[in-house]
Design a protein around this nucleic acid. Structure first.
Lengths: 211, 211
DNA sequence: CGTGCCTTTGAGAAATATCAAAGCCTGTGG
DNA sequence: CCACAGGCTTTGATATTTCTCAAAGGCACG
């Protein structure tokens, strides 16, 4: 896009800070806006009928989200929570078709975001259907460290706070099982963890555990 | 679409019969064509690294499939097998952009197919992450009978042959567990089954089992 | 400096897979 | 027309994984 186009697009956006823990939008709500994450990390989640939370995705900075229109929907399929303090740009959904028509790259970008999310969900299904809890948690940690990692001395830190509970909700297990596994892996120096923070020290061993 | 438009579109299609069991395309293959299922049922599946098969979706007649281009991909993300004898229309993928530009309804239809598939995958993830095998199998049977059912006296028959093995690959369990559950449900007159064919007799009890 | 999450760990229970074996359809070829 | 082979199904016994229940310790923030 040209500088002039970017200026036009930004003129129509509203920017705001979403503090950690804030819900940007809720599952099932009327999809009034679509969003771009400038900084921070968004967690996409759903509740089932019994009230169990399942975390579907984590969104890194730079991605569009809440793009219900691109799925032929008028409501959001899941909720989006700020995992840390986030900077978010928002546009009214009414702007969607215009952007799609006017800017070629917009449609293309949308396709590939959707394609990538679909591929990720497909992988999650494969994991849940065929792997044991230990392997699924190893996979989840690898994915998090690759896509949301920050290099530190000796390893990679996951770039947002993450509890045992959250990891269990990402993998369809329980915080107790996650805690036991992380303790064992910490003894083997594969990972290290402080309260709410996890460091991957030895990705290759983790990959091995994930098979 | 107008009659003239339909004529144009059909002129570019090739129609063919895919006998039961035939692979229409394979996971990872170059996405050379996109398809429309006129009659029959398509099963979408993937293999994991260990060679376990996971069945992601079943596609009913009337739907587009193999629409890699709409996901910003050049290869198919999964394989498609004919679950019964199928009639399939195919177009070269190079035709895709033209159709999308020329026919308004085409893009809209694509969006909603993708939206629906994504929603279905999301539901599968929720089920796999939070429900026990028994509930997942009950859900799978309900979905199959609703979306691919054929009314018969006393109940609904699933419209294509389906083995215990296939059901287990749809739910991330084993054919043994599926067999035990179906036997129990047959004793309770919730389902009835012949070799490769399943009839849902009492959907409400099944719904109860699915919670 | 106390309260509320977060984490750890043990013991026992429950769900489900695995191993094993046998019976049963169905279509094929003699 | 019958017998056979191969895939589908059933069922029991056992093993394993993972959850549930329970309790206690620890860290951080107000």
């Amino acid at each position: 896009m040209t500088t002039a186009q970017i200026k036009d697009v930004l003129a129509l956006a509203t920017a705001r800070l979403a503090p950690a823990g804030e819900y940007i939008f809720d599952e099932g709500a009327e999809a009034a806006s679509f969003h771009l994450l400038l900084d921070g990390h968004i967690q996409v989640e759903r509740l089932n009928a019994e009230g169990d939370r399942v975390i579907s995705l984590h969104i890194p900075p730079g991605q569009l989200f809440g793009i219900a229109k691109a799925l032929g929907r008028t409501t959001y399929p899941a909720s989006a929570v700020a995992a840390v303090d986030c900077v978010v740009l928002s546009w009214p959904m009414s702007q969607w078709s215009e952007f799609a028509d006017r800017y070629d790259g917009f449609a293309t970008e949308t396709y590939s975001v959707i394609g990538a999310r679909m591929a990720e969900m497909h992988n999650r299904i494969m994991e849940l259907a065929t792997q044991r809890v230990e392997q699924r948690i190893a996979c989840a940690l690898l994915r998090l460290s690759e896509k949301h990692g920050r290099q530190v001395e000796g390893g990679t830190e996951i770039a947002f706070p993450i509890t045992r509970k959250v990891l269990s909700e990402m993998t369809g297990s329980t915080l107790h099982t996650v805690s036991r596994l992380l303790s064992a892996w910490e003894r083997d120096e594969i990972v290290k963890s402080k309260r709410k923070h996890i460091f991957v020290l030895d990705p290759s061993r983790l990959e091995q555990l994930a098979q």
